[in-house]
Simulated scan of single mutants.
Amino acid sequence: MRGVAIMVVAALLLVTGCSGPFGSGGSPDQSRLERTDLRVGVGNPIDTAPLRIAVADGSFTRMGLHLELVEEQNSQNALDDLAAGRVDVAFATDVAFFTAAAAGTALQLQGEAYTSAPYTDVLVTLPGSGYTDLSSKKSPRIAVDSATDFGALATRSMIATAGGDPTKVKFVTRTFDQMPAALQSGAADAALMIEPYSTKAQQELGARVLADSSRGATMDFPVSSYASTGLFAQANAHTLAAFRQVLGDAQQRASDQSVVRAALPRVAGVDDTTAALVALGVYPTSLNGVRLQRVADLMHDTGMLSQRLDVPSLLPKADTP
C-alpha cells in the first residue's frame, strides 16, 4: 500500500465548478458541522503526505475539525475498519474501493489521494537476473502486495503493453518490505514496488527497473483515494464538505514537490537522501469521475470486475463532473 495552508473557498469553487457547502460568502460556518471529530484511516505515507501535513500544521483545526489518524496496514484493513465504524473516512487504493463498491458496499468518495507518474510504481529485478525483457517469460512470477489490488492490475497492464499474456502471470504475495527477500531467494522473478521501497531497493541492493507502470493504460493512473460509507456521508454532509475543502487545499500545496520531500523524513521515516530521490506522483485537488472511471474500466477489461462500475455515482453530488 502508498506526504497546507488554507486557501480561500472561492479558489476551491473555481476548481470544482460547484457551489460550496458554507454559502456564497466563502467563509465556513462551523456551527453547521454535524460533528467536529473525524477518525481518518491513513496508509502509504507518500500517498497521504498532504493530509498528514495538513493535520500537523493545524489546517483542519482552523476549519473546526479534529482529525484522529488511524494507521492502516493495507486497503483491506481500511475497508474492514470503515465497515465496523472504527474509522469515519478510510484511505485505500481505488482498486480496493471499486472492488468493494461492485460487491454492494455503499461508499462515497471524499477525495482523491494520489495519481501515478513516471517511476512511482515499477517492476524491479536484482542484478544478474535473467529477466531482462518484460515479455521474455511466458509465466513470470511477480511479487505484489495483493493479487486483487492495484499492483496486480498495474502488472497485468504492463505485461499486456509489452506484448505478453497477462493471464499467465503468477503472483507471489508479499508485503513491500518482504519483496527484496523474495527476489533474492528466487521466489519471484520481479516485484511491483512503490516508493520509497523501489528507491531503497536500488540504493541497497542495486535493483534495476524492469518496467515502469506509467505506460499504456496505466499512464498517469489514479492510485488511491479517501472514502466514507454512504450512510455516514448522508448524515455528515457539511462535515465531509469541510474535510474535502481542507484536503483539496492540502493537495494543492503538495503540487510543490519540495513541500512533500521536506515532510517525508517525518511522515515516511526515510532519510533525507531517499526523500530527495523518490519519484513523486500527482496529488489531485478535487474528485474527478472521468479520471477515476479509467480505473474501474480497466478493472472490468481485465476481469477484476464482472460488470462495469459507474464511478461518478460514488461521488458527492456537488463533486460530480
Rank of each mutant, 00 (worst) to 15 (best):
Thr173Asn: 07
Gln178Ala: 14
Gln178Ser: 13
Met179Leu: 06
Pro180Thr: 04
Ala181Phe: 11
Ala182Arg: 07
Leu183Ala: 08
Leu183Cys: 10
Gln184His: 07
Ser185Asn: 04
Ala187Trp: 06
Ala187Lys: 12
Asp189His: 03
Asp189Asn: 02
Ala190Trp: 02
Ala190Ser: 12
Leu192Glu: 14
Ile194Asn: 09
Glu195Ala: 05
Pro196Met: 06
Tyr197Val: 10
Thr199Leu: 02
Thr199Asp: 09
Ala201His: 07
Gln203Ser: 11
Glu204Met: 09
Gly206Phe: 05
Arg208Val: 14
Leu210His: 04
Asp212Met: 02
Asp212Asn: 12
Ser213Glu: 11
Ser213Asn: 12
Arg215Tyr: 01
Ala217Cys: 02
Thr218Glu: 06
Phe221Ile: 08
Pro222Met: 05
Thr229Val: 06
Leu231Gln: 15
Phe232Ile: 03
Ala233Asp: 05
Gln234His: 13
Gln234Leu: 13
Ala235Gly: 10
Ala235Trp: 06
Asn236Arg: 05
Ala237Arg: 15
Thr239Glu: 07
Ala242Asp: 00
Arg244Asp: 07
Arg244Ser: 15
Leu247Thr: 09
Ala250Ile: 11
Gln251Cys: 14
Gln252Arg: 14
Gln252Ser: 13
Ser255Arg: 13
Asp256Asn: 15
Asp256Met: 04
Gln257Asn: 14
Val259Met: 08
Val260Ser: 14
Ala263His: 07
Pro265Leu: 03
Pro265Asp: 05
Ala268Leu: 07
Gly269Trp: 04
Asp271Tyr: 07
Thr273Ile: 11
Ala276Thr: 07
Val278Cys: 06
Gly281Arg: 10
Val282Tyr: 12
Val282Arg: 13
Tyr283Asn: 10
Tyr283Trp: 15
Thr285Lys: 10
Ser286Val: 06
Ser286Glu: 11
Gly289Asp: 05
Val290Cys: 08
Arg291Cys: 01
Gln293Asp: 03
Gln293Gly: 05
Gln293Val: 05
Val295Lys: 02
Asp297Trp: 02
Met299Arg: 04
Asp301Trp: 00
Asp301Thr: 14
Thr302Pro: 00
Gly303Ala: 10
Leu305Glu: 11
Leu309Ala: 06
